[in-house]
Write a protein that binds this DNA or RNA. Structure first.
Length: 305
DNA sequence: TTCCAGGAGAGAG
DNA sequence: CTCTCTCATGGA
């Protein structure tokens, strides 16, 4: 990987990428904050707007602020998970024809390492909710309580700090369309603002401890805790079991109704230590092929064989 | 109108 | 431990 710097100090390139697809990575449901304009993606990361465009094996990145090239590239590589050898991870989890199809169709999709607080808040809001509404709630919270940013005519906002949401109160959070989840988000913001939950400490502990600590927060169960562990903390053994993943394992793999425990046990032994990556490819494939894991469709498909 | 969405909590059995 | 019911909201 080689870095170039142009006369415009805010534009940088990351060249010679291997096994990376920006579109699949940013549009696979793990982040709610990226907007596509033409072929570029605009988003807010660590307090600045980033504009990212992929051309072949090169990323062209514009930032709304001056960047120290070396530090910025290191941080962005971590954010996009570029430091991992994706091919070897996918080789481990590619154990059957079903996931092989998902891996090949979405080759290059990476699991992000997103900002911790924003990820905690986002997935608290995700429970019993749909993608479009989750995005609009996060946008609304940011517009009202975040910091305004602008870059070449594109306007966006930082996600509000825990202290900010703690200060504005439940009613203002509720007014952003959160529904009954307003209390959960406000409580989480308070726990972090008053130091009961220390985010930097959470980043240092292993997967079981991190998951356990997160589940102490009201409104965070196993699924949301696993999303945070996987999409922010880099714990690839985390397996968020949502309605899609449940359906996939019940119809394709276990072929019966199964409890959360049964699905976790099977998936862990079947896919191994990188089960989180397996989950992401299966999830995104199912999202793009709604009938793929449909029980009726599966029965039909089996008959043809 | 009813059902569903990257669920969690409370309560019952 | 497992099952069920409820919790706002908006789009299909």
């Amino acid at each position: 990987m080689k870095i170039d710097k142009f006369t415009n100090q805010r534009q940088m390139c990351i060249r010679h990428l291997s096994d990376f697809n920006l579109k699949y990575t940013l549009e696979s449901g793990q982040s709610f904050r990226w907007n596509r304009v033409d072929d570029s993606y605009y988003g807010v990361v660590e307090g600045r707007i980033l504009k990212i465009l992929q051309r072949g094996n090169t990323l062209i990145i514009d930032s709304s602020q001056y960047e120290d090239e070396a530090i910025f590239t290191s941080h962005l590589s971590h954010y996009l998970d570029l430091h991992r050898e994706l091919a070897s991870i996918l080789a481990v989890v590619n154990v059957d024809a079903y996931i092989d199809r998902a891996i090949n169709q979405f080759w290059g999709m990476r699991i992000l390492n997103q900002e911790l607080w924003e990820t905690i808040a986002s997935f608290i809001l995700s429970q019993n909710n749909n993608m479009g509404r989750i995005r609009s709630i996060i946008r609304s919270l940011s517009e009202r309580f975040g910091q305004r940013l602008e870059f070449e005519g594109y306007v966006d906002y930082t996600f509000p700090l825990p202290q900010t949401l703690a200060d504005v109160g439940v009613d203002e959070i509720f007014a952003c369309g959160t529904g009954y989840r307003a209390n959960y988000l406000w409580n989480a913001a308070n726990n972090i603002a008053n130091g009961e939950l220390v985010l930097d400490a959470l980043k240092q502990v292993d997967y079981p401890d991190a998951k356990h600590e997160l589940m102490k927060l009201e409104g965070i169960g196993e699924k949301v805790a696993d999303c945070i562990c996987l999409f922010s903390l880099g714990h690839l053994a985390a397996l968020p079991v949502d309605v899609w993943i449940k359906r996939i394992f019940e119809t394709i793999y276990l072929r019966r109704r199964a409890t959360l425990r049964e699905i976790q046990e099977f998936a862990k032994s079947y896919f191994g230590e990188f089960v989180g990556y397996a989950q992401q490819y299966l999830f995104h494939y199912a999202q793009n092929h709604p009938k793929w894991a449909d029980a009726e469709h599966l029965a039909l498909r089996d008959k043809k064989k």
